[in-house]
Design a protein around this nucleic acid. Structure first.
Length: 564
RNA sequence: GUGCCUGUAGCUCAGCUGGAUAGAGCAACGGACUUCUAAUCCGUAGGCCUGGGGUUCGAAUCCCUUCAGGCACGCCA
C-alpha cells in the first residue's frame, strides 16, 4: 500500500455499494444500477474524515427522502475489519464517516517506512508520457513566458513521475523555418553594421532587435575575424545563424540548468526535414484526402479535418509552415517513438493552434485525447508599479537569468507554481526582489529548517527520534497533532490529484498548509521538558513532517534548507 | 465581428465532474519571546462569488444572457 487515503476511500465505496445492493436484495430499495460512490474529504471540520453523498444522488431512484435513504444505507453497512468506527447521517443526507484512530497511526508508519519515497504512487502504471515544454525559439535568451512554462512543465513532469509514469522531458528546437531566416538576416545586418558602421545597411523591419543579436555578431568577429563579409549574403546568413544558434542553445541550457531543469531530449526541427518525416506526413495527408490546393499553396482542408478554416501547410514558395512541421513532429512522438500520452505546454497566445493540432492528429489516426495541451496565461511584468512590456525584439526584456539572479531559483519556481496555469500572473519584480516574508517559499522552508534545528538540538540533549513501533500514538491527541497527521496522510492522494489535473500548484498549496499546521503544532505542543513518552511521540511526528516537506520540496526542485 | 481564457475579501488567488455555515495567504487591527528558530503563533475584522434569468431537493460551480479585462483570428511561429 502506498496511499492510505485512497485505500480508505475504496473501502468506503465498497461498503456503501454493498449496503445498497443488500437493500435491493431485501426488497427495501427497488432494483437500479448504482453508477458509483463519491467519497470526499469534507471541507469543514467536525463532519467526519470522509463523507459520501450517495443517498442524495439516488433519492429519486429509491423514491424516499435522502435522509431516510442515508439512514437505511448506514443501518445495513458491514463495518467489520475496516478503518471506519461509525457513520452519521448529517445535513440534507450526507453520510459522514468517522475513522478509528489507527488510520493515522498507519499513515505515520507508512511515512517512516517509505522515507524519501513517501508520496510516490503507482497510479500511472509506467505509462510512457512525454512532456514537451519551454521549446523557446533559439533566437535569443529565455523570457518570462519561458520561465513560467519551464517551472510548470518541469513540475508537471515531476508530479507525473511521482505518480508512477515513465516521463520524458523534451525541448523542441525550432532550428528551421521562417524565423531562422529572420534570425540570419538580423545577424547579417548586425555583422555588417559592426564592421562598416550603423548606416552601412538597413536593419530588417521584421528582424530581432535585441542586444543579444549584436552581441553574437561581435562574438563571431572576435572569434573568426571579418573575412566572412566577402562571402555571398546567403553564406553569411547561414554561417552566422548556425554559429549563433549553437551559442544560444548553450546559454539556454545553462540558464535552464540554474533553474533546475534538465531535458532528456533536445529534438531538432531540422531533423524532421532531413529524415523526410515532413514529406511523409504531407504525403499521408494528401493521399487520404485531407488537403486541398489553392492559390499555389497546399492547405489542410477545413472540411476534411473538421476545423474552422483551411490552414496552409506548404506555401506557394514551396516552404513548409510551422504547422506542417509540427504535425510531423507529433506524428514522430506518437508513431515513431510510441508515447502513450503527450503533454505540451503552450503560452495562451497559441490557443488557436490547439483545435487544428488535434484535428491533424485525428487525420493521422492518432487519438486526439492522447494529446493534452496545457495552456498557461502569459506573465505580466511589473516594475515600479508599471507594466514592463517584455519583448525579445525591444531588447528591454528581462531574461530568465536576470530573474534567477534577482530572486533565486527557489522563489521563482515556487512563485510560478503558486497559481493554476490558467490564471493570469502578474509578476511584481520589486516584490520578488524584496525577499520579504511575503514570499511564501520562506514560510515553507522555515518550517523545514525549524524541524531540522530542533531535531539536532534535542538529539544533543539525548532525545532521539524513536521508531514507530516504540511510539505510543494515543498520546498524539490534540487538535494540532491530529490535523497535522491528517495532512501528512493526504500527500499521496494530493499527488494523484495533481497528476490528474496537471496542476502542480496543488502541491505548493499543500506545502503551505502543511507548514502552517506544523508551525501551529510547534507553538501548541512542546517537546522539550515533556515526559519522555510524550516528547518522543511528538518528536516522531515532527520527523515525519520533515520527511513530507522535504519530499515535496525536492519534487518541485526547491531546496529544503537545514538551517536559515 | 468570430472564437478561447478570466471575473470570488482592500490585494493576490483556492474552491468549478452541482452539496452542508464560500476558504487561504498578504495587507489592517489586538495579543504572545526568562521556555525546542518570533522568518513563528493566537485572535478580530473583512463577501449582492460582475449584473440578470434558467435548470432542481440544492448553484460560486451547469445552461442562456449582460457587463468588464486579457488573448487569438497571417502563405508568422
Amino acid at each position: 500500500m502506498d496511499n492510505i487515503v485512497d485505500y480508505i476511500k475504496t473501502q468506503i465505496e465498497t461498503i456503501v455499494s454493498q449496503s445498497v445492493k443488500d437493500l435491493m436484495v431485501k426488497g427495501i430499495f427497488p432494483e437500479f444500477e448504482l453508477t458509483g460512490v463519491n467519497v470526499e474529504i469534507p471541507r469543514e471540520k467536525g463532519r467526519g474524515e470522509f463523507s459520501a453523498n450517495t443517498a442524495m444522488q439516488i433519492t429519486k431512484k429509491v423514491g424516499k427522502p435522502p435522509r431516510m435513504v442515508a439512514e437505511e444505507i448506514i443501518k445495513n453497512m458491514k463495518l467489520e475489519d475496516s478503518y471506519i468506527e461509525r457513520v452519521e447521517c448529517a445535513g440534507p443526507g450526507f453520510m459522514n464517516f468517522y475513522l478509528k484512530k489507527d488510520w493515522l497511526t498507519d499513515a505515520l508508519k507508512l511515512i517512516e517506512e517509505k522515507g524519501a519515497d513517501y508520496g510516490k504512487i503507482n497510479f500511472g502504471k509506467g505509462k510512457r508520457v512525454m512532456v514537451e515544454f519551454v521549446s523557446a525559439n533559439p533566437t535569443g535568451p529565455l523570457h518570462m513566458g519561458n520561465a513560467r512554462g519551464g517551472a510548470l512543465g518541469d513540475c508537471i513532469a515531476s508530479v507525473l513521475e511521482a505518480a508512477g509514469y515513465d516521463v520524458t522531458r523534451e525541448f523542441y528546437v525550432n532550428d528551421a523555418g521562417n524565423q531562422m531566416e529572420i534570425f540570419g538576416r538580423s545577424l547579417e545586418a548586425r555583422f555588417i553594421q559592426e564592421i562598416r558602421g550603423e548606416d552601412a545597411v538597413e536593419f530588417p523591419e521584421d528582424g530581432y532587435f535585441g542586444e543579444d543579436i549584436k552581441e553574437r555578431a561581435r562574438e563571431y568577429i572576435k572569434e573568426y575575424g571579418q573575412d566572412l563579409i566577402k562571402q555571398p549574403s546567403e553564406i553569411i546568413r547561414k554561417t552566422l545563424a548556425d554559429y549563433a544558434l549553437e551559442k544560444n542553445l548553450k546559454s539556454i541550457k545553462e540558464a535552464l540548468g540554474y533553474y533546475g531543469i534538465n531535458f532528456d531530449v533536445w529534438f531538432r526541427e531540422k531533423s524532421l526535414y532531413e529524415s523526410g518525416a515532413i514529406e511523409d506526413t504531407l504525403n499521408y495527408l494528401k493521399n487520404n484526402g485531407f488537403t486541398v490546393e489553392k492559390d499555389g499553396a497546399l492547405w489542410l482542408s477545413a472540411e476534411a479535418a473538421g476545423i474552422e478554416k483551411d490552414e496552409v501547410l506548404v506555401r506557394a514558395n514551396g516552404l513548409c509552415t510551422y504547422f506542417a512541421a509540427d504535425i510531423a513532429y507529433h506524428r514522430n512522438k506518437f508513431v515513431d517513438r510510441g508515447f502513450d500520452w503527450v503533454i505540451n505546454l503552450w503560452g495562451a497566445d497559441h490557443h488557436g493552434h490547439v483545435a487544428r493540432m488535434k484535428a491533424a492528429m485525428k487525420a493521422l489516426e492518432i487519438d486526439p485525447d492522447k494529446l493534452d495541451i496545457v495552456l498557461f496565461q502569459l506573465v505580466r511584468l511589473y516594475r515600479n508599479g508599471e507594466i514592463a512590456r517584455m519583448s525579445k525584439r525591444t531588447g528591454k526584456s528581462i531574461s530568465l537569468m536576470d530573474l534567477l539572479d534577482e530572486v533565486g531559483r527557489d522563489a521563482a519556481r515556487f512563485f510560478f507554481n503558486l497559481k493554476t496555469s490558467g490564471s493570469h500572473l502578474d509578476f511584481d519584480l520589486d516584490l520578488a526582489v524584496s525577499q520579504s516574508n511575503e514570499n511564501p517559499v520562506f514560510y515553507v522552508q522555515y518550517a523545514h529548517a525549524r524541524i531540522c534545528s530542533m531535531l539536532s538540538l534535542l538529539e544533543g540533549e539525548g532525545l532521539r527520534v524513536p521508531l514507530a513501533k516504540e511510539v505510543d500514538f494515543s498520546l498524539l491527541d490534540s487538535k494540532e497533532e491530529r490535523e497535522l497527521m491528517t495532512k501528512l496522510a493526504e500527500l499521496p492522494e494530493e499527488i494523484k490529484s495533481s497528476a490528474v489535473t496537471l496542476e502542480p500548484s496543488r502541491l505548493t498549496r499543500y506545502l503551505m498548509d502543511t507548514a502552517g499546521l506544523f508551525h501551529s503544532f510547534y507553538n501548541a505542543c512542546r517537546i522539550k521538558g515533556e515526559k519522555k513518552e510524550l516528547a518522543e511521540a511528538r518528536l516522531f511526528l515532527a520527523a515525519q513532517t520533515k520527511t513530507v516537506l522535504g519530499n515535496v520540496l525536492r519534487l518541485l526542485s526547491i531546496s529544503a534548507p537545514e538551517r536559515m
